[in-house]
Amino acid sequence: MATDTFGQGVPITLLTDGPNANTLASGIVQALAQRSVMRFSSGSARAATLTAPVGGMVAWLDDARRLELYDGAAWLTLAYGAPGWTTLGLVSGYSHDGNSNGTVQWRVTTLAGQDFVQWRGGLNVSYSGSSIANGGYFNSSFLPTSARPSSLRTVSIGCSVASSDSPTLKLDAQVSGDLQIVGTQAGRTPPWVSLNGVMYSL
């Protein structure tokens, strides 16, 4: 029995091999299955089946809706299946659709094998004098564990230049799952901020 000319180890029955339809079919199926996109109900189901994965294997996980690649040491995420957007609950002092930018929503997505949280929408912001509502914390509940960064992520966010001497503020995404607008002060109290296009790694 020979193998394919691409060096992938797919067996090819020769005319000199003894006739055995089961060996022929099994050899081809077993070789090609592990080189295709394998499908599993979950990561644990995959681990139970692939006890010794090989670098280059690709698998789809139904429960996480995620495509992963084994790099020889670990399974890395390649892509998510059309991740849906989740609307963020807000505390008093904040409301959705700041500057007609839409409802504030987030989702976890993947770029070059790295998970990111992606944001869209705008926030209306209120103040007491020059003090931002709730100290700048605006989400009514913590982000789920799957959307919390491993360390503090500080990114720039756009804001209104009305009542502000700066067109940007900071967003602190905290490991606790809390979100805080940072940088407001006297002379910098914009009535809205935009989260459109904001991303940070997990």
Results as ranks from 00 to 15, higher is better:
Leu15Glu: 00
Thr16Asn: 14
Tyr200Ile: 05
Gly27Tyr: 02
Trp75Gly: 02
Asn124Ile: 05
Thr3Lys: 07
Thr16Glu: 05
Ala162Leu: 14
Gly55Thr: 12
Tyr127His: 10
Gly187Pro: 03
Leu88Ser: 02
Gly197Leu: 10
Pro11Gln: 05
Gly93Ile: 05
Ser151Phe: 14
His96Phe: 01
Met1Ile: 15
Asp97His: 03
Val104Asn: 01
Gly98Arg: 06
Ala25Val: 10
Gly121His: 02
Phe142Glu: 14
Phe6Gly: 07
Gly72Met: 07
Leu69Thr: 04
Tyr137Asn: 11
Arg39Tyr: 15
Arg39Cys: 14
Gly7Pro: 11
Gln105Arg: 15
Gly122His: 03
Leu78Cys: 12
Tyr200Ser: 09
Thr103His: 01
Gly121Glu: 01
Ala45Trp: 01
Val175Tyr: 04
Gly158Phe: 00
Ser126Pro: 03
Leu61Arg: 10
Asp115Tyr: 03
Asp63Phe: 06
Gly122Phe: 05
Trp119Arg: 01
Gly136Arg: 00
Lys170Tyr: 06
Val58Cys: 05
Gln105Leu: 04
Thr13Pro: 01
Thr168Pro: 04
Met199Phe: 13
Ser41Thr: 10
Thr13Lys: 13
Gly18Trp: 02
Gly158Val: 04
Leu15Tyr: 09
Met199Cys: 15
Leu14Pro: 00
Ser201Asn: 12
Ala82Lys: 09
Gly18Arg: 05
Thr3Asp: 10
Ser156Asp: 12
Ser140Pro: 05
Phe6Lys: 08
Gly129Ile: 14
Pro53Ser: 13
Ala186Pro: 05
Asp17Ile: 06
Thr23Ile: 15
Leu202Asp: 02
Thr3Gln: 10
Arg65Phe: 06
Val117Leu: 09
Asp71Tyr: 04
Gly135Thr: 11
Gly136Leu: 02
Pro11Ala: 09
Ala112Leu: 13
Ser146Pro: 01
Val104Gly: 03
